[in-house]
Computed example of a mutant assay.
Amino acid sequence: MKLLFITATNTNIGKTFASLSLIEHFSKQGLTVGVCKPIETGITEIVDGELRVESGLADATKLLRKVQEYNENFKALKPIDITAYTFSLPASPFSADINRTIQIENIKSKIKQLSKLCDLLIIEGAGGLMVPITKDYMMIDLAKDLNAKTLLVTPSKLGCINDTLLSIEALKNRGISFDWCVNLFEDRDEFEEVTKPFYDAYFNEWWSLEDKGVDLINKILS
């Protein structure tokens, strides 16, 4: 069983888009994939285990539905079953948890439970690496404690070089095994001129979520 932790440079970068893409890709490659969204904030409604946010379906709902297309072991689960904590305030877990209910061991227990149902468990974090879960425990700490291979999703907008390098530096400083990729969706037309030249010069290699030629099993999971 392998763990893949999906994180990003910030919120609204494309963690869920990346997770959905990887669930489908790895499943079609013959892996039995599962999913966990340890903490979901901004929940406006919970009905019979289904999670909703103001804009519609919660990330956990989208992720579970995709996994259920391929993994029979997740068919009986509800979105609430793949989360450890849900909160109504759309904020960091620490801020959303106004009653201070979060226990890190409960998150790890949920991950351990779901990992028994698959060969690869994709764990989608909340926000970026330094988003606080508790006062002294960040998303990056969870990735480290889980000893999970981490995938950092970065944006394509102006200013993303700084965000990408800072996040990579943080992962290296914690000794976390990681890969990173670009989600080409913001300032996409300008990316070729504004950002790509630096990435090509600075990194030996890099890839985007839209790059279908990447051998993701060997690149991410090796």
Rank of each mutant, 00 (worst) to 15 (best):
T150N: 00
L63N: 11
L142N: 07
G49K: 12
L142E: 00
Y70F: 15
G56Y: 15
I46D: 07
L63Q: 10
K144R: 09
G159V: 02
Q68P: 04
L165F: 11
V131W: 08
A126K: 01
P93S: 01
Q103W: 02
E72M: 07
S109C: 08
K144E: 15
S95C: 10
L77D: 08
C118G: 14
G125V: 05
K78W: 09
D48G: 01
G159F: 08
K116R: 10
K108F: 12
L165E: 14
Q113V: 09
I80Y: 13
K110Q: 08
A143D: 02
L77A: 00
N73Q: 10
K78S: 09
S92T: 13
L151C: 09
D81V: 04
I161M: 10
I107V: 12
K144T: 12
N71D: 07
L129H: 09
V131D: 01
S55A: 15
R52K: 15
A148W: 11
N73H: 12
T101P: 01
I39G: 00
V35N: 10
N147E: 14
E124M: 05
L142S: 02
C160R: 07
G127R: 08
D48N: 14
P155W: 13
I111G: 04
S115H: 07
D163P: 00
L121W: 09
S92H: 10
S109T: 12
N147D: 14
D59K: 03
F74P: 00
E50V: 12
P79L: 09
T61W: 04
G127W: 11
S88D: 14
V35E: 11
E69I: 08
E54R: 14
F87G: 01
L165M: 15
D145Y: 02
L165G: 11
T150P: 00
N99F: 13
L89S: 08
L151M: 06
A148N: 04
I122K: 09
S156L: 03
V47T: 15
G49Q: 07
L158S: 02
S156N: 10
N71C: 08
Q113E: 14
K144M: 02
D97T: 05
V47C: 04
I43N: 04
Q113M: 04
P79S: 15
T41D: 03
V47E: 12
L121D: 12
I39V: 12
N99E: 15
C118D: 07
I98N: 02
E45W: 12
P93N: 07
G49I: 12
G42H: 05
G49N: 12
L57G: 02
G159Q: 03
D141K: 02
K62L: 13
A126S: 06
T61K: 04
A84E: 04
E105S: 13
G159M: 06
A60G: 08
A84Q: 01
A60P: 00
A58K: 01
F74N: 02
I46S: 15
E105P: 06
V67M: 10
G56D: 03
K37S: 09
K110I: 12
A148D: 05
Q103S: 06
K66D: 03
D136T: 13
I140R: 00
L129Y: 10
C36R: 05
I111T: 06
L152Q: 01
A76E: 13
L77I: 09
V53K: 11
L77V: 11
D81M: 03
I107M: 07
G56N: 03
D136V: 05
D59P: 00
D48R: 08
K108C: 02
L120C: 13
G56K: 13
